[in-house]
């Protein structure tokens, strides 16, 4: 069982997290101009890198979606970043 780092709550057990999506996949818009192929690639194609992976995860106990960089081979957590700007 792994432990991940929530930027807000810190080091926590993996059961508290959900994987969301690989990072760096902007939603293709507007829909009317997106080809079937491009949309299918957005929905279904992932890089699943061996080694460093940038992923969006959800910490389900606090509700934060955040960017986590981890090594899929060593399982090391390289960084966790909050994606929200600080509220004024």
């Amino acid at each position: 069982m792994q432990a991940f780092t929530c930027p807000f709550c810190g080091h926590r057990d993996e059961t508290e997290f959900h994987f969301v999506v690989e990072a760096g996949k902007p939603r293709p818009e507007p829909s009317e101009e997106v080809s079937d192929e491009k949309w299918a690639a957005y929905l279904h194609m992932g890089k699943a890198p061996k080694g460093e992976a940038r992923e969006i995860w959800l910490h389900i106990t606090c509700g934060l979606y955040f960017l986590m960089t981890r090594d899929t081979v060593t399982r090391d957590i390289l960084s966790s970043e909050c994606l929200l700007e600080a509220s004024e």
């Binding site: 969301v20 959800l58 509700g63 700007e85 509220s87």
Partner: peptide, 19 residues
């Protein structure tokens, strides 16, 4: 309920920048 809440949160944080 939980799943809908996460979809709403996803939209709130990703689409609206949490604002």
């Amino acid at each position: 309920v939980d799943g809908v809440r996460w979809k709403l949160e996803d939209g709130r944080q990703d689409r609206l920048g949490g604002k």
